[in-house]
Protein backbone atom coordinates (compact mmCIF):
# COMPACT_ATOMS: atom_id res chain seq x y z
CA UNK A 1 0.00 0.00 0.00
CA UNK A 2 2.60 2.52 1.03
CA UNK A 3 4.85 1.74 -1.91
CA UNK A 4 1.91 2.45 -4.20
CA UNK A 5 1.50 5.89 -2.63
CA UNK A 6 5.21 6.64 -2.91
CA UNK A 7 5.32 5.66 -6.56
CA UNK A 8 2.08 7.46 -7.40
CA UNK A 9 3.68 10.63 -6.03
CA UNK A 10 6.81 9.87 -8.03
CA UNK A 11 4.58 9.52 -11.09
CA UNK A 12 3.13 12.96 -10.43
CA UNK A 13 6.67 14.30 -10.08
CA UNK A 14 7.71 12.79 -13.42
CA UNK A 15 4.68 14.32 -15.13
CA UNK A 16 5.57 17.73 -13.70
CA UNK A 17 9.27 17.51 -14.55
CA UNK A 18 8.50 16.26 -18.04
CA UNK A 19 5.99 19.02 -18.75
CA UNK A 20 8.46 21.59 -17.51
CA UNK A 21 11.15 20.17 -19.77
CA UNK A 22 8.84 20.01 -22.77
CA UNK A 23 7.81 23.64 -22.39
CA UNK A 24 11.16 25.13 -21.39
CA UNK A 25 13.79 23.22 -23.36
CA UNK A 26 14.32 24.17 -27.00
CA UNK A 27 16.46 21.30 -28.30
CA UNK A 28 14.18 18.78 -29.97
CA UNK A 29 16.03 15.79 -28.55
CA UNK A 30 15.33 17.14 -25.07
CA UNK A 31 11.68 17.65 -25.96
CA UNK A 32 11.52 14.00 -27.02
CA UNK A 33 13.13 12.97 -23.70
CA UNK A 34 10.60 15.14 -21.87
CA UNK A 35 7.70 13.51 -23.66
CA UNK A 36 9.01 10.10 -22.58
CA UNK A 37 9.33 11.26 -18.97
CA UNK A 38 5.71 12.50 -19.02
CA UNK A 39 4.55 9.17 -20.43
CA UNK A 40 6.44 7.24 -17.76
CA UNK A 41 4.76 9.35 -15.08
CA UNK A 42 1.31 8.65 -16.51
CA UNK A 43 2.10 4.92 -16.74
CA UNK A 44 3.14 4.92 -13.08
CA UNK A 45 -0.23 6.39 -12.15
CA UNK A 46 -2.20 4.13 -14.47
CA UNK A 47 -0.66 0.80 -13.48
CA UNK A 48 0.60 1.80 -10.05
CA UNK A 49 -2.88 2.56 -8.74
CA UNK A 50 -3.93 -0.93 -9.83
CA UNK A 51 -2.03 -2.17 -6.79
CA UNK A 52 -4.27 -0.33 -4.29
CA UNK A 53 -6.19 -3.40 -3.16
CA UNK A 54 -4.00 -4.87 -0.41
CA UNK A 55 -2.92 -8.47 -0.74
CA UNK A 56 -4.77 -9.23 -3.96
CA UNK A 57 -3.16 -9.78 -7.34
CA UNK A 58 -2.71 -6.48 -9.22
CA UNK A 59 -5.43 -5.64 -11.74
CA UNK A 60 -4.15 -6.96 -15.11
CA UNK A 61 -6.21 -4.55 -17.24
CA UNK A 62 -4.23 -1.36 -16.53
CA UNK A 63 -1.05 -3.41 -16.81
CA UNK A 64 -2.02 -4.41 -20.33
CA UNK A 65 -2.89 -0.77 -21.06
CA UNK A 66 0.55 0.36 -19.91
CA UNK A 67 2.21 -2.27 -22.09
CA UNK A 68 0.29 -0.85 -25.03
CA UNK A 69 1.25 2.66 -23.95
CA UNK A 70 4.96 1.79 -23.79
CA UNK A 71 4.90 0.41 -27.33
CA UNK A 72 3.07 3.49 -28.60
CA UNK A 73 5.63 5.72 -26.86
CA UNK A 74 8.51 3.87 -28.52
CA UNK A 75 6.86 4.23 -31.92
CA UNK A 76 6.25 7.95 -31.36
CA UNK A 77 9.84 8.45 -30.19
CA UNK A 78 11.21 6.73 -33.28
CA UNK A 79 9.15 8.94 -35.58
CA UNK A 80 9.97 12.12 -33.66
CA UNK A 81 13.71 11.40 -33.74
CA UNK A 82 13.66 10.65 -37.46
CA UNK A 83 11.74 13.86 -38.06
CA UNK A 84 14.25 15.79 -35.98
CA UNK A 85 17.10 14.39 -38.10
CA UNK A 86 15.26 15.27 -41.31
CA UNK A 87 14.68 18.81 -40.03
CA UNK A 88 18.32 19.05 -39.12
CA UNK A 89 19.50 18.00 -42.56
CA UNK A 90 17.02 20.38 -44.25
CA UNK A 91 17.69 23.44 -42.10
CA UNK A 92 20.75 22.75 -39.94
CA UNK A 93 18.61 23.43 -36.88
CA UNK A 94 17.59 21.15 -34.05
CA UNK A 95 15.04 23.60 -32.71
CA UNK A 96 11.63 24.67 -33.89
CA UNK A 97 11.52 27.97 -35.74
CA UNK A 98 8.80 30.20 -34.40
CA UNK A 99 7.86 32.12 -37.52
CA UNK A 100 8.18 29.45 -40.12
CA UNK A 101 4.85 30.00 -41.82
CA UNK A 102 5.82 32.86 -44.15
CA UNK A 103 8.02 31.61 -46.95
Amino acid sequence: MSSVLVFALAGLGLIGLGLYGLLVQRHLLRKVLAFNVISSGIFLLLAGLARRAPGAEPDPVPQAMVLTGIVVAVAATALALAMMLALRSATGRTRLEDHGDED
Binding site: L5, A8, L12, L45, L49, A50, R52, A53, P54, A56, E57, P58, D59, P60, V61, P62
Partner: peptide, 12 residues
Amino acid sequence: VWQLWVPAPGLS
Protein backbone atom coordinates in the same frame (compact mmCIF):
# COMPACT_ATOMS: atom_id res chain seq x y z
CA VAL B 1 -5.23 10.94 -6.87
CA TRP B 2 -5.69 11.26 -3.11
CA GLN B 3 -9.47 11.03 -3.63
CA LEU B 4 -8.89 7.76 -5.46
CA TRP B 5 -7.34 6.28 -2.37
CA VAL B 6 -10.04 3.73 -1.74
CA PRO B 7 -9.01 0.15 -2.51
CA ALA B 8 -10.85 -0.98 -5.62
CA PRO B 9 -10.45 -4.32 -7.35
CA GLY B 10 -10.85 -2.78 -10.80
CA LEU B 11 -11.56 -5.52 -13.29
CA SER B 12 -9.30 -8.20 -11.80
